[in-house]
Amino acid sequence: MSVRNITPVKEFEDILPKEYKDLVNKGPFNNKKSVDDLGTFKEIIEEHPHCAGCGVSLGIRLALASLPSPEDSLVVGTPGCSFFALSQSAVNYSNTAFGNQNAVATGLKRMLQIRYPDKHKDVIVMVGDGGIADIGLDLTLHSWFRKEKITTIMLDNEVYGNTGGQESGMSMKGRVLNMAPTGKKFDKIPVFDMAEVSGCVYGARVTVANPKKVGQVVRNAILIAREIGPTYVQIFTPCPTNMKFPPDQTIKIAKEAQKDQYSYKEFMTDEVAEYLKNI
């Protein structure tokens, strides 16, 4: 894990396919980039099979563009829609059994600290709401209780998207879905609040309708996790396929959610507040 992994042997430079040459010469590895630079550089995310208007793919795009050191980052995922784009992106990626992501990330982070004691290696969990709030809730909470220095990012589309539209713990109460025809019977699980009481030192709740904010909080969360403790970012990534809205309305739906269940929220400890003043 270093920028050498993306440095071709000179003799092989010419035979690399174009997207790899672009990644080397115009990617975010040698020249640091951010969400503000989107459209001007070769991004880590590649072509992917997500549905048109997918909020998850946009969330991944924004999060990957915000990595402070992509060459020293390891993204940990789990089955779900997020897997499709993440497994095709040009960043170290580890998939896990469903829900195990924070336990695997813990092991990877500890191993990387032993292997590279003098370098920051960012371990970032990036999974859907099913992976965090339902199937992986216990392992996620325990990683926070243990104060593991990893960043957890939830791409919350409020549904199990790629399996046909089952309700998830993060679906809104009353939401009618393909596999929840009478509507969801209980409230959205307050994972954001649970993160604060479980030991996260920093948390932010945003939507893809505000790309700059997503970029800023993801970057902050990763930098804070390096130094202080576990961090959590919850991004609303609406799903046109299962929520039955036209693909060009994703941002509109996300904006509407900002007035309701996805108003901007942030929490941080005093130590984090002091740290943020100095970066």
Binding site: R4, N5, V9, K10
Partner: peptide
């Protein structure tokens, strides 16, 4: 393992 210059010695092997 031979395309990317990820550690010393790779360049010689690639050549």
């Amino acid at each position: 393992l031979v395309l990317w210059n990820w550690k010393d010695g790779v360049e010689e092997k690639a050549k």
